[in-house]
């Protein structure tokens, strides 16, 4: 796969993941650039990769961890408001967001990966650096809570 196609096919996915995690559009864009630069330099690794999407998200996740470590050290502020314009304020969407916020990490990210990106537990394990079994058990727990909330009608 050439670099241009890789970028065109997956830029939205990488941006979406970073924006979800950071709630900051500007920093998400910066990290998309860092992610794809690293991908370009490691493009030869892609030949042995089953899922380019998971491979890119793993790079993006590492960039995110680096960024958060740097920002903690340098006390860099995030700007959560910069995504407000992009997100809808429809009540059902807000409730779903609130419900997700009740999940701890990495369950919240696992739910995002499973339901928004359609990633398997194995792919999520590669991205988050966790064993597949751990992702599965966390997915079971998160799923149980989501089902419970849906059944109670709290996500209306």
């Amino acid at each position: 796969m050439d670099f241009e196609r890789l970028y065109r096919d997956h830029a939205d996915t990488v941006f979406g993941y970073l924006a979800f995690k950071l709630q900051d559009r500007q920093i998400a864009e910066d990290l998309v650039q860092e992610t794809f630069l690293a991908a370009y330099h490691g493009l030869e690794q892609l030949e042995g990769v089953q899922s380019p999407k998971a491979w890119l998200l793993a790079i993006a996740h590492n960039k995110l961890v680096d960024f958060l470590r740097r920002s903690r050290n340098q006390d860099l502020p995030l700007h959560p408001e910069s995504l407000e314009a992009a997100s809808s304020s429809a009540p059902s969407k807000l409730h779903m967001q609130e419900i997700l916020e009740q999940l701890a990490e990495p369950e919240r990210t696992i739910v995002y990966g499973l339901y928004v990106e359609g990633l398997t537990c194995r792919e999520l394990g590669e991205i988050l650096g966790l064993p597949e079994g751990t992702v599965k058990s966390k997915a079971h727990y998160a799923r149980r809570r989501l089902y419970q909330w849906l059944q109670e009608g709290s996500a209306v």
Binding site: F15, G16, Q33
Partner: peptide, 26 residues
């Protein structure tokens, strides 16, 4: 199916201008 539908709005596309700018920078 309900979870898929309810969580779909979390997917955000990168703004086109940003996509082009980042690609040009890379």
């Amino acid at each position: 199916l309900e979870l898929k539908q309810r969580l779909a709005h979390l997917k955000r596309a990168m703004p086109e201008e940003a996509k082009e700018r980042v690609y040009a920078a890379i």
